[in-house]
C-alpha cells in the first residue's frame, strides 16, 4: 500500500483547505479502503471528514422536504422512522444495499460517490480508462457491461442502490468547495463516461458533498413507492437490475409518476418517457408494460440480445406494479425483494 498522510480536520473549512490533488476524502471508508488495499486508489493524503460537526443531521421539514447530512450512516437513515415513512423507497434501497455491517459504516455522501465494481477497474494490471486514462477498456474487449449509456472507453455500471430512488425523486446535492457552496441537481451529479470515463461526477476537484435534500414534492409518492432489486442471492450482492417506481394516484388515475433504473448504466438511469406515458392513465399491467418498454430506449444495439435487457424491462414493470399496490405499512423483512414472506402457505393448482 502506498504510504499516505492521514488528516482529521475539525471543521469543514480546515478540510477544504487540506485538500489538494492526490488527496482523498474518507467517510465510512467502505469503498475507499478496499480500493486502497487492492491498489486502485492511491491517495497521498487521506482526509477523514468524520469529525466535522454538523454533517450528521437528519432534518425533516414541515413542508415535506428533508435535508440529510453527508455523514449520516446508511443504516441510521434507513431506520429513521420519520424519514422511512416519508421516503419509503429510499429507505428500502438503503436496506437492500451491501450488508448490515457495511451499512453501519457507510455514509450518505460516500454512497453517492462510490466507484464502479467493474472487475477490470478493480484489477490494476488491466486496461481501464477510468482508472488510467488512455489505457483502453478491457471490459469492452469481452462485450461490455452497461446496457445503455456506455461509451467505447468505458461501460462500467454504477453500483449504488440509493442513487436510483434519489434520482427518481429529484434530490439535490449540497456541495462545499474552495469557491464556496453550491447546489447540484441529482440528475447532473453523475456523468456518462463519454470521452472522459475518469471523470465520473460533475463535482470539481476539492469539492465535498455536505448534504442531500429531498424536495417537498417527493413526499407525495410515499403511499405508492417501491424499490425492487434483482439478484441471485438475497443479500450482499449488487443489483443485476433494479428499479425505483413511484406513483401518485388520484381518483383511480396516475397523476404523477417516477421511474429510475439501476444496474444497467454508468449512472442511475431515469426514464422520463415512461413517466410521461403513465400520467393520466389508470394503473394496470398493460400500461405498466408499455411504460417499462421505454426503459432501454436508445440502448447499445449489442444489448438487444442481452438477457439483462429483458430482465431490466420486467424489473421496471414489476416495480410499477408493486408501487401501484401501495407501500407496505412497514419496511419488508427482505428489502427490495419480491420475496416478501418466505413462510407463506403453498396452494396446489
Amino acid at each position: 500500500m502506498k504510504p499516505f498522510d492521514f488528516k482529521q480536520p475539525a471543521t469543514l473549512e480546515q478540510a477544504l483547505t487540506l485538500w489538494h490533488p492526490g488527496a482523498a476524502w474518507l467517510g465510512g471508508g467502505t469503498n475507499l479502503v478496499d480500493l486502497m488495499k487492492i491498489g486502485v486508489a492511491r491517495p497521498d493524503t487521506v482526509i477523514d471528514i468524520t469529525r466535522i460537526p454538523g454533517l450528521s443531521e437528519i432534518d425533516l421539514a414541515d413542508d415535506g422536504s428533508a435535508r440529510i447530512g453527508a455523514l449520516v450512516k446508511n443504516s441510521d437513515l434507513a431506520d429513521h422512522p420519520g424519514f422511512a415513512a416519508r421516503f419509503p423507497m429510499v429507505a428500502e434501497a438503503l436496506l437492500s444495499g451491501a450488508s448490515g455491517q457495511l451499512r453501519n459504516a457507510a455514509t450518505l455522501g460516500g454512497n453517492l460517490m462510490q466507484a464502479p465494481r467493474c472487475p477490470w477497474f478493480q484489477l490494476p494490471e488491466s486496461a481501464c480508462n477510468r482508472r488510467n486514462p488512455g489505457s483502453g477498456c478491457d471490459a469492452r474487449q469481452v462485450g461490455g457491461l452497461a446496457l445503455i449509456g456506455a461509451s467505447e472507453g468505458c461501460s462500467a455500471i454504477h453500483p449504488s442502490d440509493l442513487c436510483v430512488p434519489l434520482l427518481a425523486l429529484d434530490a439535490v446535492v449540497e456541495v462545499a468547495g474552495p469557491d464556496g457552496h453550491r447546489e447540484v441537481p441529482f440528475a447532473t451529479l453523475h456523468r456518462l463516461p463519454g470521452e472522459h470515463p475518469e471523470t465520473a461526477t460533475t463535482l470539481a476537484p476539492g469539492e465535498l458533498i455536505v448534504a442531500l435534500r429531498l424536495p417537498a414534492g417527493a413526499a407525495r409518492f410515499a403511499g405508492h413507492a417501491a424499490y425492487l432489486k434483482v439478484r441471485e442471492r438475497t443479500s450482499f450482492a449488487f443489483a443485476l437490475t433494479s428499479a425505483a417506481a413511484a406513483l401518485e394516484l388520484r381518483d383511480g388515475r396516475i397523476t404523477a409518476a417516477r421511474l429510475a433504473l439501476g444496474g444497467i448504466a454508468p449512472k442511475p438511469w431515469r426514464v422520463p418517457e415512461a413517466e410521461a406515458l403513465l400520467i393520466g392513465q389508470p394503473p394496470g399491467a398493460e400500461v405498466f408494460a408499455r411504460a417499462a418498454a421505454h426503459a432501454l430506449e436508445g440502448a447499445d444495439p449489442a444489448a438487444r440480445k442481452n438477457w439483462r435487457r429483458l430482465l431490466a424491462i420486467r424489473t421496471a414493470q414489476k416495480a410499477l406494479h408493486m408501487a401501484a399496490l401501495g407501500t407496505p405499512e412497514t419496511l419488508p423483512a427482505l428489502p427490495g425483494s419480491v420475496f416478501r414472506s418466505p413462510a407463506q402457505e403453498v396452494s396446489h393448482a
Binding site: 419480491v338 420475496f339 416478501r340 414472506s341 407463506q344 402457505e345 403453498v346 396452494s347 396446489h348 393448482a349
Partner: peptide, 16 residues
C-alpha cells in the same frame, strides 16, 4: 406425499 407429479402446479399467495 402431497407433491403433484407434473410441474408448474403450485403457487404461493404472492404468485410465486
Amino acid at each position: 406425499a402431497h407433491r403433484p407429479l407434473t410441474p408448474r402446479q403450485m403457487r404461493d399467495a404472492e404468485g410465486m
